[in-house]
């Protein structure tokens, strides 16, 4: 039985084995390879996607559990013309090196800033503590997220 949901604004219908995680479905069936898989047991955060507005680990979700939801991946938070303000801030602060954890950082930070554009450094660190990065040491990532807050604030 196919599972129907929306990915990055477009409806999809996929037929996969029941045991297929949402992460594997996105990567290997829908070929959205921006979502990365780093541990498959819910620790590293590289596979973070946004489901109905909430950042979640797509390795801890069955594809079937996405039925009827709206899923956003890093590809859905990107465009061809230019980097988004969040992405540009990551670049400016050198908040990525090998790039493997980066999609999960972007999706997580986007979900956070969309809800809490006024969050402070402690909150950013608290939220990002669920995303492992082995290259940067995190200092630059936290700076990048804080610097991107202004882009998420609603005009007064």
């Amino acid at each position: 039985m196919p599972t129907n949901f929306e990915v990055n604004g477009k409806p999809v219908s996929v037929t996969v084995e029941a045991r297929t995680t949402l992460a594997d479905c996105l990567r290997h069936h829908l070929r959205l390879t921006g979502t990365h898989v780093g541990c498959e047991h819910g620790v590293c955060g590289a596979c973070t996607v946004i489901v109905d507005g909430y950042a979640v680990r797509s390795c801890l979700m069955l594809t079937a559990q996405a039925e009827g939801t709206k899923v956003t991946t890093v590809e859905g938070l990107s465009n061809d013309e230019a980097l988004t303000p969040l992405q540009a801030s990551f670049r400016k602060h050198h908040a990525l090196q090998c790039g493997f954890c980066t999609p999960g950082m972007i999706t997580t930070a986007h979900a956070l800033l969309s809800e809490e554009p006024d969050c402070d450094a402690d909150r950013v660190r608290d939220v990002l503590s669920g995303n492992l990065c082995r290259c940067t040491g995190y200092i630059s990532i936290v700076e990048a997220v804080l610097d991107a807050r202004s882009a998420y604030k609603k005009p007064a």
Partner: peptide, 15 residues
């Protein structure tokens, strides 16, 4: 600023 960031940040790296 790094040129490789342009693909990594948009999920367009190829691992």
């Amino acid at each position: 600023e790094r040129r490789e960031d342009l693909r990594f940040l948009r999920g367009r790296g190829e691992y």
